[in-house]
Design a protein around this nucleic acid. Structure first.
Length: 417
RNA sequence: GUGAGUGUAGCGCAAUCGGUUAGAGCACCAGGUUGUGGUCCUGGGGGUUGAGGGUUCGAGUCCCUUCACUCACCCCA
């Protein structure tokens, strides 16, 4: 029989990989719960229409869809947000506000696999619904930063680039662009951060913008703070409300202690039809990886999906890019998911001690191969156990592997180590 | 969808100009030594050189086809 390999763009998780994956999920879940988000989930497949409703018919090309035996058109979820929107809309009136939900979803997208992008991956999603103000945006950004900090990532290594679709749209409108003309400019802006300056210049030339707009775009590109942009570029036609909103968001981020991670940068655009307010994306500062995490405000989504209008913001982070980030910064913990005790000795004696440890809520294992003591010792050392316990008739010895310290110990003491 | 690169043991690799039976390391297994550790020694299993075809006295090596993987473009919810 021919060996069948895993489908393109998928991964097998052997124990080493699974430990790492578990670490990602553990951190994501921990910081979410710590911030008062509640975990939710839905089906891994949905009606194809759910995705078409949110993203248009073109989306079908980019997802795994199929007909079930009842001839229903279904799709494996390519993202969690439509499910979230469906769930919120179904109980909209009854949900206490704000709704703060998170989810770690396994998702599939039919795309060419490449670095940092596979056909099956996990996405951590956090959303806040029913909160119209920038407090919710600040909460989301802060949560993303807290996860990065928990992974051991510093503000030297990554940054949150914060933009605003509201501000961008105001600038373009101020210069007389119609809603139809805006996407081309958004697209160019988005590219500008990612291509060499000459190429960027050429892209802008091709748009034939007015000199005034061209000037404002130059200011956008060279501004590192919102204040600086306003100083260099004047009002840009912003309303007081729009300016206040960004300033308030920035001061909330400062109050939350994540200011050092955040840089104002209007080049960040993200999906075209979707976002309505602040948008942001996390990048590694070395510029080696695609974006690690991103989100923003999408106040129209719930109504689009058939619910009552409801303000919303949120973000998603992928396991693949996050993993690559931890790879490149060498931030994987080495002691995760290992059994705490490895008990060495004759089978009957080892089993007795292992049983006691497990009953006491500790993790423990022993030899199952009938191996000689020296062999057991080697296996125990290789297992990464924190403690090795040797049992010989009635005497127990405990060895702490990091320090190498060893001592005689009673069973009662052992259970409390 | 477009373009480029790479396929040799479980893994990362070597094999001169096309030349004998494709090698060593790590990992795995067995034995020995160190009696409570990660050492060391000996041995072992593992390969249709991705697959198919061609050129040749002879192909891991050259040519064609195909498949897979990787990277980039497009796209990125």
């Amino acid at each position: 029989m021919a060996k069948i390999q895993a489908p393109k763009g998928t991964r097998d998780f052997y124990p080493d990989e699974m430990r790492r994956h578990r670490h990602l999920e553990d951190v994501w879940r921990k910081v979410s719960l710590r911030a008062g988000f509640e975990e939710v989930d839905g089906p891994i497949f949905e009606s194809l229409d759910l995705y078409i409703q949110k993203s248009g018919p073109e989306i079908v090309e980019q997802l795994y869809n199929f007909k079930d035996k009842g001839d229903r058109d279904l799709a494996i979820r390519p993202e969690f947000t439509p499910t979230l929107a469906r769930m919120v809309a179904a109980r909209q009136a009854a949900l206490p506000r704000p709704v703060k939900w998170f989810n770690i979803s396994r998702v599939c997208r039919y795309e060419r696999a490449q670095k940092g992008r596979l056909r099956e991956f996990w996405q951590w999603n956090c959303d806040i619904l029913g909160a119209p103000g920038v407090e919710a945006d600040a909460e989301c950004i802060t949560l993303a930063v807290e996860a990065l900090r928990e992974f051991g990532v510093t503000s030297e290594q990554v940054e949150v680039r914060l933009s605003s679709r509201r501000l961008l749209a105001a600038i373009l409108k101020h210069h007389g662009l119609t809603d139809e003309q805006m996407p081309a400019v958004y697209l160019a802006l988005d590219k500008l951060g990612k291509v060499p300056p000459e190429v960027g210049k050429q892209m802008l030339d091709e748009l034939h913008l007015s000199p005034e707009l061209r000037h404002d775009i130059e200011v956008i590109l060279t501004s590192n703070t919102f204040d600086q942009m306003l100083r260099d570029g004047g009002s840009f036609g912003f309303t007081q409300g729009a300016t206040d909103e960004m300033n308030r968001l920035l001061s909330l981020l400062e109050a939350n202690g994540v200011k050092d991670f955040v840089r104002f940068d209007l080049r960040v655009v993200r999906g075209l039809a979707y976002y309505t307010g602040p948008v942001w994306e996390v990048f590694d500062k070395r510029g080696e990886l695609r974006s690690i995490c991103g989100g923003g405000r999408y106040d129209n989504l719930i109504a689009t999906m058939g619910g009552q209008p409801m303000p919303a913001c949120g973000f998603g982070a992928g396991d693949v890019t996050t993993g690559l980030l931890l790879d490149s910064l060498d931030l994987w913990p080495t002691d995760i998911g290992r059994v705490e005790f490895y008990v060495i000795g004759a089978a009957a004696e080892s089993f007795a001690v292992v049983g006691q440890l497990r009953s006491a809520g500790r993790s423990a294992q022993c030899d199952l191969m009938g191996a000689q003591i020296n062999r057991q010792m080697k296996v125990a050392a290789d297992s990464g156990a924190r403690y090795i316990v040797t049992v010989q008739s009635d005497s127990l010895r405990l060895r702490e592997m990091n320090s190498g310290q060893e001592r005689e110990i009673t069973l009662d003491e052992l259970l409390k180590v």
